[in-house]
Design a protein around this nucleic acid. Sequence first.
DNA 1: TATTGTTATACTCTATAACTATA
DNA 2: TATAGTTATAGAGTATAACAATA
Lengths: 150, 150
Amino acid sequence: MLTTVPKLATVSTAALAHDLRIAVTRITRRLRHVAAGRSVTLTQLSALSSIGAAGQQTLGELAARERVQPPSMTRVVAGLVDSGLVQRSADPRDGRQVLVDLTPAGRALLEEEIGAREAWLSTRLNELSPDEREILREAGKIFVRLADDE
Amino acid sequence: MLTTVPKLATVSTAALAHDLRIAVTRITRRLRHVAAGRSVTLTQLSALSSIGAAGQQTLGELAARERVQPPSMTRVVAGLVDSGLVQRSADPRDGRQVLVDLTPAGRALLEEEIGAREAWLSTRLNELSPDEREILREAGKIFVRLADDE
DNA sequence: TATTGTTATACTCTATAACTATA
DNA sequence: TATAGTTATAGAGTATAACAATA
């Protein structure tokens, strides 16, 4: 069951918001649980993905892209550097800034992660109908748009 | 941008899984940020919602329903009890068990939260098209189903 | 003086292991 | 001995405040 007041769910945006909060909370819990024990955490994977998508960038840019505060990103990057997946270098033009980029190992892991068809979520998605997958594909785009909203 | 390898996103389930992980990570981050400073956290709201939906139940049942381990639920419930939103009582038939239920304040808060049209997510959802809201409604159902999957 | 990033600290969320109370 | 829940502890994820280095 998705909501405490099922009838509202079909008519009210506020109820949809409530249902979505619960749904997102639960799926996140499950994804983090499944991710436990893997080589990178969900947060690290998200950062890795952003670096892969946008290429070498400053830590501040990466924090903004990931919508976290700089101190949080400092910690995430430190973990990735420790794992050999990301490298830091000084910005030759501005000594205050730190440039981050994927190492070859980081790029390999990112691609392996994308291609990991045996992953829990991939398996579950394969059990869905094409229509349901299309819904999730569109929902993912909307979520990212909402998350990026000012 | 949703993925590092946009072309794959339209053809591969694995890539969809990756995109969804990122999307869910980001929207969760945003929702938690928006929730900060409110009276209950997302986790507490989720538990409150489960108690509201299923009524008085044991702590173990609630933990199972929320898909967390009992120690985690002990802490969540302790916070809710401290806030006066949930009450605990001994099960008269089995002294080992603890029954939890909403207090009137808990029920009121849950309903207020559901009806909080001014909330960030509600506002954003209202800016979407009806079709987009329908996608999110369906996606929410699928997420809950996936999260409950064995 | 303003900006970039780091360190220190704290709070939420969750887990496993060890323990207590009851059955 | 088995079960329900709690306590102790730990790790991930995030934040704000204070600081250092550079511009």
